[in-house]
Every structure is written in structure tokens, then in C-alpha cells.
Design a protein around this nucleic acid. Structure first.
Length: 933
RNA sequence: GCGGCUGUGGCGUAAUUGGUAGCCGCGCCAGACUUAGGAUCUGGUGCCGAGAGGCGUGGGGGUUCGAGUCCCUUCAGCCGCACCA
């Protein structure tokens, strides 16, 4: 029997499928374990060899846990809504549902070939109505809840209304967009419309006029994490700031809990750090400044209350509402000119070009502590969206303020003894205060505390915690997303009744905005809501009396991915996102594997979403993902050929310096070990058909470089091709063998022969000349040692996700067994089970070859017996002054003194001592001997 | 600028956590076999050196009997955040 991987892999994949080997259900007799992959967006390009890396790692862990007696939930699905399918629809007119389905089918085909243990009965697609029903449901719940700051949890809006009716805002501490203050009488006197508008100020899902990131090229707004350096992350289109009425989720209310929760999860420090940065907690004080000669005051936020005596000017963000209030008549034209100039600059330009710009407003503020009058300036270095959009500038101790003061010749007052501010500001929070009234003589740390206390006591402001985390803008002016279950009466949003969900995505004729600039859903023929009949009806019937318009925006990409891990627990449930029974059993994800690119998007939103559902009592765990591992990126390894300028002649790598050449990417699939296949090259592209070559030793050597794996670099390797040539088990092993899971590393197909050879060698322990050679003989001590040290190593490696080293441990094991021609059942049987998580097909085959009739997945993972590992002798390296000179075999039982005695009894020792007397002898029993001379 | 991670043969990497640096694999070299291959098997392969030996984990310094591993410093690369007050 040959190792016929093609036949064998197909056979077992079929067997697993037909016998539902990977079907999972609640089983209270076994401990549960939930292993999840970040589900993919099914792109048109299909999978390349980098995508399955994380899937293989999680698959190994899932299989291992199962063999260890756990009931393992290991599902897969698709993040099926998204921009690329819609962009494609715009270009081709094909319905995004059609292309999405096609892409999903392709993904599935590719995934199936690799032999994953997914329970496909639990597959979800975010674009399916029975799934997005629950996305809409969660949104309605968010609309119906507000965040109570005191309780630090979401509470029903109904309770808030009751409080307003009896006491107004008194005693209410609700997270809100804008602090409001009204009495019960005032509330009760308001119209329904007015009350609804006020409630939007509190709801967790709310509609508000916000400054948003508008991307004209994509025709939609984008969330902060979808924009980087002023351009859209997807597509790289310019993004501008615009005020629009949009749905938002009050993620910022959960800032503190999102931060605290990080302490409870087992994630990498770098990922936690990224989330901490994104949440951006800063403790400080909010100070009230009165404006001189006007009945106006404004607040600023500062983390350096200690520097209050050094404030020499104030700065407002150009977008601040205060600008209009504080601009005096003589400064009006200058301010207007500055504001319009600022508006013209995109955010990108502002970031790229750090010129100091600004204009004086004409007004003066009064320092609430020192009483000094200070000029109020306007500058775009102050952000409208952070804090209050106004700052107190302390040029001596803040580098941005310093640059501004220098540019406009404003005073700089040093506040720390001995600091030099002649060239730059002193930003460090250390030293002793001076020029600071009652703070003089204190350290900076003490002064911050003292100043805060003073501010609170004198009622000059309040101690406050600020977060950088913004609410998530939740509307997209696009077609291919979840429709909002929302209709509008007099411009005010109302939710569809829960029992009418899902609100289905309507058909439209073109996937473009309407002629009047409304989102694509504006084209839908049936997009009205008959309130009395509770049905969707023709858009033409909208009369704003009985039939009302439905929301035209759709939800963003992160909507569907925020709670999908919960749905896998109970994917067919028609009465809830997840049943209490399923949720109580599976709880949350024990191991989540995916890329770092979701660090600030998906992983913040889903934590927020989960916490919200936790507050409602719908889920039992506060954090969704207990342990998280980021797999590294697989980079491409590109190959180059060198064309001699103005010719069709190509020169081999080491001769290219003799010519003037152009470097050209060449398809890595026609290169082997950096040697170009000349015939394939000529056939690759018509322009190379008559190419000529300057060779070295009859070969054309290509250059190479590690780059991103992409079509344009011709370095994309398709897993299908690898499976076809080497089999899925070889692919799985090689992906793991490449290097540590979390590290980025280049893919080079050339190395794959090594692991393929390993599998053949393993096969060779079972079959020789087509004969099964497995024997029932008792294994030797050495064979048992080989097996058990491998069990020990591989177990430790799996637990620590060090899969590259376990593959090499398997190789060492098989090398050792081959060397002694060991084909004994007592050794091979446990070895096959040990290998099953990594190479399930060949393991299943060999498990059956050994006479087992049930799947290897139901075997028991072997346990290391330390007794077999005990050594009777130790090879001591004997070193002199730290340099190893010779090895000495000694009984392991010897103690320190006995080892020393043996070493000095050896004549080699005398040779290296060369008559000198040792100053010191170090003996570490079982390890080394070092003689210091 | 701030924060994090990583630097080991020609390449991907390993090192029982302070104890023989280079395991495993690719590649390369030599040999065997021969249905001449992108097959299989055997041996070799960090660098310098004929050899004894010396050097060697980005560079410099330190702690230690002993450092890839710990400390200080410096350089390079990758990632995250970045007018966040």
C-alpha cells in the first residue's frame, strides 16, 4: 500500500460527513469547550494559503480537546454583508446576494478540502433573515434602553420616562449626548414629539445630528475604525467631516466596563494595550472659565489641574459653538476667514501639515483660580470631538501649547523649579511646583491632587474622567446590509413591533443612491410601513398618516458580527438569539483565533454588544471571548526575473549586475527553489514567448523578496493546489511547521516536501512493500521513551499553541522509530491518536488499519508515563572556564561530590587543567560541570 | 513623538526558561540506486582555519563560575496609537 493521500482523504471526509462525526449538542455529562474562528467575509478571490492558518490552529485545538474528553463546539459561518459585494453589484448589476452565495460556495469547497471538524449544521450567514432578525432585535432593545451611570448598566427607557414624569431630571444619572435639566412639570407639558426627541438623548441606540466621516466615493458614512489617516480603510477613498442625522450606538457609555473587562480576559498584552489606547481613559478635572464682560462661561477638560497658574491663553476648536459667542466685532472678519480656511483643509491635510495656525477671538477669559485675564484663541490643533472642544493652554508644560505660544508670541510661565523652557516645553510630570500660589512646594503628583480638591471645594468645576472612545455611528447609506426596523412619523423614529421582525431587505432596481441623493433603499417600491395593519406596503402609499416611510440606511458591517458567537450556540432558535439553556451550557468562547485587524473594531463592538445583552439578562457572561490568539500573517515570497533593458533577454540573478536590467515579478508557481521553468515562463505571457535567457550553470536563478501575498505580486498560493499535490494533512502540518502561530512569516512552498516526506515515513512504519508490517511485539525501553517523550512534548506544545515545535517533535519521533524499524502496535497506536489533531485523515486511516472500527476522534488522547523517561546515565558536558572540552557519561544517581570526584578522576581533566589548580568547581547535578581555573 | 513586538546559519526556525547555541525541515555538497525524477536512500553542511584551534545569537557595555536568555545602552525592522489637553 502506497500513501495515497488523495483517495484516503476523500474517503474519510465522506465518512465523517455521512456519520455526522462533528455534530455537537448539549451534553451535560461532559465539560464544554467552545473554539471559535473569526468568521470570514467571503471575497471573490477565494482563500489563499494564508487564510487557513488560524483555522488549522483552532481545528487542532478542537480535536485535541475532544480527545481529552471535552464536548467541543467548533462552528463556522460567513460575515456575508459588506461593501465589496455591493461595489461589484454596482459595476455588474448582479445582485449582491447572488455573488455572495457564489463566493460562500467557493469558500466552503476550499474549506472542506482541508478537513476541518466544523459542525456545519450550525453555519450562519449574517445576510440570512433568520439570522439578521436577531441583529434587528438587538437594535430595538438598544433603542428601548438607556445606560444608567450609577448602576453602570442598561435599563429600560420606560423607567426613565417614569422618572421624568415624577421628578424630571432630578436624581437621574443617565448617560447622554447632552446634559439636560428639566422638571416633571416641564416634561409633562411637552408634546409627544418633543418627549421623543429628548429620549433620543438617552437611548443606547439613538438618532442624532453628528459630525460623521462621510466618504463621497463610497456614498456612505464610516465609523472611526473604518477610517485611517483621513481615508477609508476599504478602498482608500478620501473621507470628509459632515454633520448628518445618523443612528449611533452609545458605546462610550460602556467605556469603563470595556476597560475593566480587559483585566478578566486572557488576551495578549499588545491587544489589550491597543484596546486601552482606543478607549483612552484620562483622569482630570473639568474647570469652568467665565468670560470677561459677558454673561458667558465655558468648560475645559485638563489632566494637569496643577498647571492652572501657568495658563496664558485659551484655545477653542474651530467647530466649537463658543466661537460665535466669543468672537468680538473687530475680530469677526479675521475669525471668519480662519474658519473657512480650516474647513477647506481635510483632516488628512491637517495631520500631514503641522503648521501652527490660529486666530484671536477678541475675548478674554478669567482664570478661576488666579483671577488673571487670559486671551481666548481659536485653532485647529484643538479637537471639537474630545473633551469640551476647548482647552486651557499651558505653554510651559505642553509642547503643542508651547509651539502655539512661540508662534503668536504669547507668554510662557514655567511652573516647575529649575525647568528650562527656553527651547521646548517641559512635559514631564515630575518636579516641585513654583509660581503656583497655594501649590508651591508640592510635587507635581501632589499638586494635581491638591488642585482637584481645591476645584471641587470651591465649586470651580468637577473632577472628571474622559474617554477617547466615541459612540459608534451605525447608519450606512448602502444597500447590502441589515435594514433598520424603523419607520418615521413627523421625522421621529419608531420601532417596528418585535413580532414583525425580521424586516426583510427589499429588492431594488439599481444599487445606487437615488437621483435625489437618498440611499439605495430609496429606490425600493415597497418601503412604507402601514402602522395600523403592521405590514410593509408600497412606497407610493406613504401618506404620513396611515403609511409611513421606513428607514433608508442599513446597518454597518460590524452589526452582524457583534453577536454571531452567541447564535452558533443555538442557530435554529426561532424564539430568541440563543436559548437560556444553550447559553448556560456553552457560556462564552473559550478560545478565539483571528487576525489583529479586528483589534479596535469587531473586538470592541462585540464586547459592547455582549455587555448590553448581559445587562438585559439574555446572556450569562459579561465577556464574550475568554482567551484570544492573533495568528500572524502569512506573507508572500515573490520571485523576480531581470530583463536586460530594451530587449527580451532575461539574465540570471548573479549575472544581472553586468547589465542594465529591470526587475519583473514572475509567478511563483512557475519557479521551483528559485529556479525558473523556462518553458512555463515562455507560455506564461505572450510577450515572453520568444524570450531569451542568459543562464548560470544552465539554470535561470530568480531573485526573491518577502512581500504581501497579493495577485499583483504573483505570489499567491492557493491551498487547493497544495491539497491536490500533497494532500490536506501535508498542508495542515506545513502551515503549522512554518513557525510560531502568532508570528508573521513568509510562505515558501519549497519547504513542504519535508513534512510530506514525514507522512510517508510514518506510513512506512505500517507498510513495507505493500505489506502491513505492524507487529504485536513488546516495545523496548528506548521505543517507549521515544513515544512518551513525544507525548509529553506534543501535549505541552498544544496547550501552549506551539504547533511548529510539535510537528518537529513528530518528525524526531518517526525518525527514531524508523531508525530501529519499530512497527509495534503498542507504539504506533498511541502515536496515531497523538497525531490525529494535526493530520486527521492519515490518522483516521491508520487508526482503522490497526483494527479500530470507531473514529479516531472518539479515541482517548495518550498520556505520558514519566517512568519511561527516567535516564540511568547523564552525559555531562565538562567545561573549563565556561568552555566545553569533553563529555563524560556518569550514572544519574551521583550527587554533587561524587560527580566532582569522577570528573577529577578522568585523565582528560588533567590534560585540560595542565597542572593548574582549579579555583572553583561548579557541579549542577544532571546538567553540567564547570571548572574555573 | 508615545507604546508594543522582533533581531540566531543561505532560508523557515529550535534551545528543557540562566547550564553543550543551531534541534526539525528547506536549500546546498558528496555518494548510492536507476523506469533519469520536481523520485527514493545514505553521509556531510554556522563562520574562519590544512590542522590544532579560534570566532559566533544586530552593535557596545555590565551582572554571573556560566548569558541567545537577566540589566544598561545603542542600531535596525515590523505593528498599534498619535495634535486626546
Amino acid at each position: 500500500m502506497e500513501y495515497n493521500f488523495r483517495e484516503l482523504e476523500q474517503k474519510w471526509q465522506k465518512f465523517w460527513k455521512e456519520n455526522q462525526i462533528y455534530k455537537t449538542g448539549i451534553n451535560k455529562d461532559k465539560p464544554k469547550f467552545y473554539v471559535l474562528d473569526m468568521f470570514p467575509y467571503p471575497s471573490g478571490a477565494g482563500l489563499h494559503v494564508g487564510h487557513p492558518l488560524g483555522y488549522i490552529a483552532s481545528d487542532i485545538y478542537s480535536r485535541y480537546k475532544r480527545l481529552k474528553g471535552f464536548n467541543v463546539l467548533h462552528p463556522m459561518g460567513y460575515d456575508a454583508y459588506g461593501l465589496p459585494a455591493e461595489q461589484y453589484a454596482i459595476q455588474t448589476g448582479q445582485h449582491p446576494a447572488v455573488t455572495t452565495k457564489k463566493n460562500i460556495d467557493r469558500y466552503r469547497e476550499q474549506l472542506d478540502k482541508i478537513g476541518f471538524c466544523y459542525d456545519w449544521d450550525r453555519e450562519i450567514r449574517t445576510c440570512e433573515p433568520d439570522y439578521y432578525k436577531w441583529t434587528q432585535w438587538a437594535f430595538v432593545e438598544m433603542f428601548n434602553h438607556y445606560f444608567d451611570n450609577k448602576l453602570q448598566k442598561a435599563m429600560p427607557v420606560a423607567g426613565l420616562i417614569k422618572a421624568f414624569e415624577t421628578n424630571g431630571t432630578v436624581g437621574v444619572d443617565a448617560n447622554c449626548t447632552e446634559e439636560l435639566c428639566f422638571s416633571a412639570e416641564e416634561w409633562n407639558a411637552k408634546t409627544e414629539l418633543e418627549q421623543q426627541e429628548i429620549l433620543l438623548n438617552y437611548r443606547v441606540a439613538y438618532l442624532a445630528d453628528l459630525k460623521v466621516n462621510w466618504c463621497p466615493a463610497l456614498g456612505t458614512v464610516l465609523a472611526n475604525d473604518e477610517v485611517s489617516e483621513g481615508v477609508s480603510v476599504r478602498g482608500g477613498h478620501p473621507v470628509e467631516q459632515r454633520v448628518m442625522r445618523q443612528w449611533s450606538l452609545r458605546v462610550s457609555a460602556y467605556a469603563q466596563r470595556l476597560l475593566d473587562g480587559l483585566e478578566k480576559v486572557d488576551w495578549t498584552d499588545s491587544l489589550k494595550e491597543t484596546q486601552k489606547n482606543w478607549i483612552g481613559r484620562s483622569e482630570g478635572a473639568e474647570l469652568v472659565f467665565n468670560v470677561k464682560g459677558q454673561d458667558v462661561s465655558f468648560e475645559v477638560f485638563t489632566t494637569r489641574a496643577d498647571t492652572i497658574y501657568g495658563v496664558t491663553f485659551m484655545v477653542l476648536a474651530p467647530e466649537s459653538e463658543l466661537v460665535a459667542k466669543l468672537t468680538t466685532d473687530d475680530q469677526k472678519s479675521a475669525v471668519e476667514e480662519y474658519i473657512s480656511a480650516t474647513k477647506k483643509r481635510t483632516e488628512r491635510e491637517r495631520i500631514a501639515d503641522r503648521r501652527v495656525t490660529g486666530v484671536f477671538s477678541g475675548s478674554y477669559a478669567i482664570n478661576p483660580v488666579s483671577g488673571t485675564e487670559i486671551p481666548v484663541w481659536i485653532s485647529d490643533y484643538v479637537l471639537a470631538g474630545y473633551g469640551t472642544g476647548a482647552i486651557m493652554a499651558v505653554p510651559a508644560h505642553d509642547s503643542r501649547d508651547y509651539a502655539f505660544a512661540r508662534h503668536f508670541n504669547l507668554p510662557i510661565i514655567p511652573l516647575i523649579e529649575g525647568c528650562d523652557v527656553s527651547d521646548e516645553s517641559f512635559d514631564a510630570k515630575e518636579g516641585i511646583m513654583c509660581n503656583s500660589g497655594f501649590l508651591n512646594g508640592l510635587t507635581v503628583k501632589e499638586a494635581i491632587a491638591a488642585a482637584k480638591k481645591y476645584i471641587e471645594e470651591k465649586n470651580l468645576g468637577r473632577v472628571k474622567v474622559n474617554y477617547r472612545l466615541r459612540d459608534a455611528i451605525f447608519s450606512r447609506q448602502r444597500y447590502w446590509g441589515e435594514p433598520f426596523p424603523v419607520y418615521y412619523k413627523q421625522g421621529m423614529p419608531y420601532m417596528l413591533p418585535m413580532d414583525k421582525l425580521p424586516l426583510l431587505l427589499p429588492e431594488i432596481d439599481k444599487y445606487l443612491p437615488t437621483e435625489t441623493g437618498e440611499p439605495p433603499l430609496g429606490r425600493a417600491a415597497n418601503w412604507g410601513w402601514n402602522e395600523a395593519m403592521q405590514i410593509v406596503t408600497a412606497s407610493s402609499e406613504i401618506d404620513n398618516a396611515a403609511v409611513f416611510p421606513l428607514e433608508l440606511s442599513t446597518m454597518p458591517g460590524f452589526a452582524g458580527s457583534s453577536a454571531y458567537y452567541l447564535r452558533y450556540m443555538d442557530p435554529k432558535n426561532e424564539n430568541g438569539l440563543v436559548s437560556a439553556e444553550a447559553n448556560d451550557y456553552w457560556e462564552n468562547v473559550d478560545l478565539y483565533i483571528g487576525g489583529t485587524e479586528h483589534a479596535t473594531g469587531h473586538l470592541i463592538y462585540s464586547r459592547f454588544w455582549n455587555k448590553f445583552l448581559f445587562d438585559l439578562g439574555k446572556v450569562c457572561k459579561d465577556e464574550p471571548f475568554k482567551r484570544l490568539i492573533n495568528q500572524g500573517m502569512i506573507q508572500g515570497r515573490s520571485n523576480f526575473v531581470y530583463r536586460v533593458k530594451d530587449s527580451n533577454t532575461f539574465v540570471s540573478l548573479n549575472l544581472k549586475d553586468q547589465y542594465e536590467t529591470t526587475q519583473i515579478h514572475v509567478d511563483v508557481n512557475i519557479v521551483s527553489n528559485d529556479v525558473l521553468d523556462l518553458e512555463k515562463f515562455k507560455a506564461w505571457r505572450p510577450e515572453f514567448s520568444d524570450a531569451e535567457f542568459i543562464l548560470e550553470d544552465g539554470k535561470y536563478h530568480c531573485g526573491w523578496a518577502v512581500e504581501k501575498m497579493s495577485k499583483s505580486m504573483f505570489n499567491v498560493v492557493n491551498p487547493d493546489d497544495i491539497v491536490e499535490r500533497y494532500g490536506a494533512d501535508t498542508l495542515r502540518l506545513y502551515e503549522m511547521f512554518l513557525g510560531p502561530l502568532e508570528q508573521s512569516k513568509p510562505w515558501d512552498t519549497n519547504g513542504i516536501d519535508g513534512v510530506h516526506r514525514f507522512l510517508k515515513k510514518l506510513w512506512g512504519l505500517f507498510y513495507k512493500d505493500n505489506q502491513l508490517v505492524v507487529k504485536e511485539e513488546t516495545p523496548t525501553a528506548d521505543e517507549l521513551k521515544t513515544l512518551h517523550k513525544t507525548i509529553k512534548k506534543v501535549t505541552w506544545d498544544i496547550e501552549n499553541f506551539s504547533y511548529n515545535t510539535s510537528v518537529s517533535a513528530f518528525m524526531i519521533c518517526v525518525n527514531e522509530l524508523s531508525a530501529v524499524k519499530c512497527s509495534k502496535r503498542a507504539i504506533l497506536e498511541p502515536l496515531v491518536v497523538l497525531l490525529a489533531p494535526f493530520a486527521p485523515h492519515v490518522a483516521e486511516e491508520l487508526h482503522h488499519v490497526l483494527g479500530n472500527t470507531t473514529t479516531v476522534n472518539d479515541a482517548v488522547f495518550p498520556v505520558c508515563n514519566e517512568e519511561y523517561l527516567v535516564e540511568s546515565t547523564v552525559k555531562y558536558p565538562v567545561s573549563f572556564n565556561g568552555k566545553v572540552r569533553f563529555m563524560l557519561d556518569l550514572p544519574a544517581a551521583l550527587n554533587k561530590d561524587e560527580v566532582e570526584k569522577e570528573v577529577f578522576a578522568n585523565d582528560q581533566t588533567a590534560k585540560y587543567l595542565a597542572g593548574a589548580s582549579p579555583k572553583k568547581v561548579i557541579v549542577v547535578p544532571g546538567k553540567i560541570v564547570n571548572i574555573v581555573m
